[in-house]
Nucleic acid binder design. Structure first.
Lengths: 230, 230
DNA sequence: ACAAAAGTGTTAATCTTACACCCATGT
DNA sequence: ACATGGGTGTAAGATTAACACTTTTGT
């Protein structure tokens, strides 16, 4: 057994947020190294006694002062031996969603700067992070069509039109409002709060909330949340 | 940046094969260490200059003398810090399929022994390999219902009933033969060879083959191979 | 002629799609 | 009264699900 291995292991997180009908990605500016002043995903090396999950959460806290709502492993990037110019690094990439209310304050940041970028306006990224982001974007699109992850991007109470716009803007397509509403309501995982949105233009809109308990119950029963529409 | 990291990186492969209407998994007997004489997945440490893909393929060759038909990354196991009792190992698990004709000869094996086990008759496994196998089994079941991976488990020419049995036995359910045939044929990715199977009992059965070219063309067009049946 | 596995169509039920007008409020 | 966004139903079309008999061969 070759114990003389010289490969480092890192984690990276693609954090998606949603605000003002736009999907955003959290990036941090590199402070050191070849990629100094380039934007990059949140990430860093795993500590010896730390699980991968712990490492991601720690980096999210340290670099961006953020706690995420949803976290899943995305893919492990280790087929480009020179993805990091310093030495060989294998990176386990994670896919994260934050509630839009967490979008504003990027506190505790020990990175030079941490910012949200619209998915349509991403600067050149350090390392192979553009590739990782591309995969994450595909994942969020695919996942949205068979799992109700949209709620992890919205505030606790939201309008039906928010949900609708979220689907439209992430999937980049028009959807039929009536069919969408019917489908989502048919799952029975969101409920009317009885409240109305703060007054704005037009007819007042009902506020809805996601019913986590009901959701878990349905998952138990093996229900599949497929959303097919135009 | 903490360069003083003491974590090793390994790859493991869950190799599925199919023969005599049974799904099989390739296991090797451990030669050394705490788990000596336990069965384990094919796998080993990644070499410094080697990609993860190369590492898996090398291990498959060295430990089992096998070349696989389909290989995809499954999941990276790194949340149990003590999954290997010797030191910390993060393992990138791969999911592989081999054509059933490759099932018999396990040549070149530098493992004490390498054998196929029926999925229903798996011995206790070393490390956390039972957990990895469980995930791989879920993956093959899920994947079968939306991707035509069954062909990577069958010989080049096969009977419709082989394909039917493959779905039944992997998914553990009865299927309606007529509806199944209709669905599969509707994709247009398999074709009649014009040949018939070696004579056996009953009416002679046509031999079919998978049309890789047509398949890729359809993927290009964005067709989704969903298979829903009883 | 019979046993064994292969091959084949139709119908009802369900789900999906397409589509347009009224409602409640603020200005 | 009108502008704005919210809320709602129905009918045609497509897909899925349920179902059993005939064909071809070997024995």
């Amino acid at each position: 057994m070759e114990l003389n291995q010289n490969i480092k292991i890192a984690v990276d997180a693609i954090v998606f947020g949603y605000s003002e009908n736009k999907l955003n990605v959290l990036l941090i500016k590199q402070k050191f190294g070849v990629f100094k002043d380039h934007w990059a995903l949140v990430g860093g090396f795993v500590k010896d006694g730390e699980t991968l999950d712990e490492a991601v959460n720690r980096e999210l806290r340290e670099e961006a002062g953020i706690t995420v709502n949803y976290l899943e492993q995305l893919y492990t990037f280790g087929d480009n031996v020179h993805r990091d110019p310093r030495f060989r690094v294998v990176s386990v990439a994670y896919f994260a969603l934050v509630n839009s209310t967490a979008l504003q304050p990027i506190a505790d940041s020990d990175a030079d700067e941490a910012r949200w970028f619209s998915i349509n306006d991403i600067p050149p990224l350090a390392f192979d992070h553009d590739q990782i982001l591309k995969l994450a974007y595909q994942r969020i699109q695919a996942k949205l069509t068979y799992h109700p992850i949209g709620f992890d991007l919205l505030p606790k109470e939201f309008l039906f039109s928010d949900l609708e716009n979220l689907y439209c803007s992430i999937l980049n397509k028009e959807i039929d409002r009536r069919n969408f509403r019917k489908k989502i309501l048919s799952f029975g995982i969101i409920e009317d709060t009885g409240e109305y949105a703060p007054k704005s233009k037009g007819r007042p809109a009902k506020l809805y909330r996601f019913n986590q308990t009901k959701y878990e119950q349905l998952v138990q029963e093996g229900i599949f949340f497929e959303i097919n529409f135009a």
